[in-house]
Simulated assay, not measured.
Amino acid sequence: MIIVTGANGQLGRMVAERLLKRVPAGEIGVSVREVEAARDLEAQGIRVRRGDFDDPETLPHAFECASQVLIVSTGTTGEAAVRGHRAAIDAAAAAGAKRILYTSHMGANPSSPFHPMPDHAATEEALRRSGVPFTSLRNGFYASSALELVRASLETGVLAVPEDGPVAWTAHADLADAAVLALTGEVLDGLSPALTGPEVIDMAGIAKILTRVTGRPIRRVVVSDGDYRAQLVTHGAPESAADLLVGLFAASRRGDFAPVDPTLADLLGRPTVCLEDYLKSAVTPPR
C-alpha cells in the first residue's frame, strides 16, 4: 500500500487524486490529521486514517501495511518540524516500508537564512540514517508562493519588497505528477536534482508579468529588510511570519533558489508550467 501524508493539503491531495489514475484505490492510503476533511477520498475507495506527526502514537495505524510512504513536509518550522518529520520516518520504517519519500526543497541547506531550509536538510539527514531506501524530492519554489508575495500589489500597483534574487518558480501540479511517478516507477532515488519550472524570475520580472496579464502598471520598489518586516508586523503578521519572509528574500539574494534543472520536464515528458501562465490563470477572471 502507498501511504500519502498531508492529503488534506494542496500537494498531498493532488498526489492522492493522481495516484487513483495509476493504481487501484485499495492500494492507496492517506494519513491526515482531520479525517472528516478526507471523506471524499474515502468515498473513492482510498483508505483514510488519522495520522499526526505531533502525536506519533497515531502513525503505526495510519502507516499499517505500507510499502511506500510519501511524507509531505509540515507547515511548521524549527525543531517541531524536524521532530515531526523524524517521527514519520521512524514510523514508516517500523511499518516495513520499502521506500520513504519526502517533499524537500531545492534550497535545502543547514546554513540557509530561510527557516524551512535547515529543517529540510535535517530531515534529509534523518532519511539517510533511517536505513530505508529513500527519495528526497527537492521541489522548486511553489508558484503559489509568488502569488501570495505579490497579492497586495494587485490592489496598490506597487510591488514593494526587499532586494531579491531569481527564483525557479514551480507549479504544484507538476510536482504532484513527479511525486506520483516516483511512487509508481523506478525514478528519483536518493536526493533528487532540483525539480524546477522552466525559468528563473525575480520580483522585477514578476512585476512585468503582472503588468502584462492585468493590463495595469505594477511598479517594483525595493525596500529594506527592516522596513519590510515592520510593515508586515504593522499589518498584523506575527513576528515569526515576518522573520520567515525576510529570510526568504535573503536566501533568494544568495541564489539559493536560482538553478533551473531539466529533470522535472524530462521526467514528465512535457514542458512544465511557466510562471506567467500560472499567474495569468490565477489573477485574471475566467471568460
Results as ranks from 00 to 15, higher is better:
residue 4 V to N: 01
residue 5 T to I: 06
residue 9 G to R: 05
residue 9 G to Y: 04
residue 12 G to A: 01
residue 13 R to D: 08
residue 14 M to Y: 03
residue 15 V to T: 04
residue 15 V to Y: 02
residue 16 A to N: 06
residue 21 K to F: 09
residue 26 G to E: 13
residue 28 I to K: 06
residue 29 G to D: 02
residue 30 V to G: 00
residue 32 V to S: 04
residue 33 R to M: 03
residue 34 E to C: 00
residue 34 E to N: 14
residue 37 A to R: 15
residue 38 A to H: 11
residue 42 E to L: 07
residue 42 E to A: 15
residue 43 A to K: 13
residue 43 A to L: 08
residue 53 F to Q: 10
residue 55 D to V: 15
residue 57 E to A: 15
residue 58 T to I: 09
residue 59 L to M: 10
residue 65 C to K: 14
residue 66 A to K: 09
residue 67 S to K: 11
residue 68 Q to D: 14
residue 68 Q to T: 08
residue 69 V to L: 08
residue 70 L to N: 07
residue 76 T to Q: 05
residue 77 T to Q: 04
residue 78 G to T: 02
residue 80 A to F: 00
residue 87 A to Y: 06
residue 90 D to P: 00
residue 92 A to W: 14
residue 93 A to K: 13
residue 94 A to D: 12
residue 96 G to M: 02
residue 109 N to F: 01
residue 109 N to S: 13
residue 109 N to M: 03
residue 111 S to W: 01
residue 112 S to D: 01
residue 116 P to K: 07
residue 119 D to E: 04
residue 121 A to T: 01
residue 122 A to D: 00
residue 122 A to C: 02
residue 127 L to A: 11
residue 129 R to T: 09
residue 132 V to L: 11
residue 133 P to H: 02
residue 135 T to W: 04
residue 140 G to C: 05
residue 141 F to T: 08
residue 151 R to K: 15
residue 152 A to E: 15
residue 155 E to T: 14
residue 164 D to R: 03
residue 164 D to I: 01
residue 166 P to C: 07
residue 167 V to M: 07
residue 168 A to V: 04
residue 174 D to G: 14
residue 181 L to T: 00
residue 186 E to N: 12
residue 189 D to Q: 12
residue 190 G to C: 10
residue 191 L to N: 12
residue 191 L to R: 14
residue 193 P to G: 07
residue 193 P to V: 02
residue 196 T to M: 02
residue 196 T to V: 01
residue 197 G to F: 09
residue 199 E to F: 01
residue 200 V to L: 05
residue 202 D to V: 11
residue 212 R to G: 11
residue 214 T to H: 06
residue 225 D to E: 12
residue 225 D to L: 05
residue 227 D to N: 11
residue 229 R to S: 11
residue 240 S to V: 11
residue 249 F to W: 04
residue 251 A to Y: 00
residue 252 S to A: 15
residue 256 D to V: 01
residue 257 F to H: 04
residue 259 P to Q: 13
residue 261 D to G: 04
residue 262 P to A: 12
residue 268 L to I: 07
residue 268 L to P: 08
residue 272 T to Q: 04
residue 274 C to F: 06
residue 275 L to P: 04
residue 281 S to R: 07
residue 284 T to G: 04
residue 286 P to E: 09
residue 287 R to G: 14
